[in-house]
Amino acid sequence: MRMSDFVVRESIIPELAATSKEGVIREMVESLRAAGYFKGGELEDVIKAILKREMLGSTGIGRGVAIPHTKHSSVDRLIGTVAVSRTGVDFKSVDGEPVFVLVLLISPQDRPGDHLRALENVARCMRDDVFVRALRNCTTRDSIWSLLEEATP
């Protein structure tokens, strides 16, 4: 599994407008909606579920990276999006550092295996400093997409 297998290309955000934790999560989920993935009512429910998960412990895993996620019945396959923040977001990460790269995942209720493989894949990519640096330097959706396609864990 590659990141380009589950990231929705049209939903990638090369420059987040929001700067707060809740704001960037909302912006990313809205971007997935704009790409045709949710109906209006589901949008709020998905955002709420992701924020609820964050309350159990931040998904800011350090290295300037966060992986906010949830399970939700509105999707029938694992989907995700990638966003880059220029200013950094206070995500209450484990290392206390701001987050610049976000990968948001939404999985169906009954597919824990897919979710775990996606996490494994994201972790392998983010472990690579060169990859994270390149991602942060991208200024367009296309350049982020090429990077995701290049990254073969």
Binding site: R124, R127, D128, V130, F131, R133, A134, L135, N137, C138, T139, T140, D142, S143, I144, W145, S146, L147, E150, A151, T152, P153
Partner: peptide, 15 residues
């Protein structure tokens, strides 16, 4: 795209 994302070549080296 590749010019915009420096370091693509280095991604060949995996973890």
């Amino acid at each position: 795209s590749e010019r915009e994302a420096p370091g693509l070549g280095a991604l060949r080296h995996r973890v």
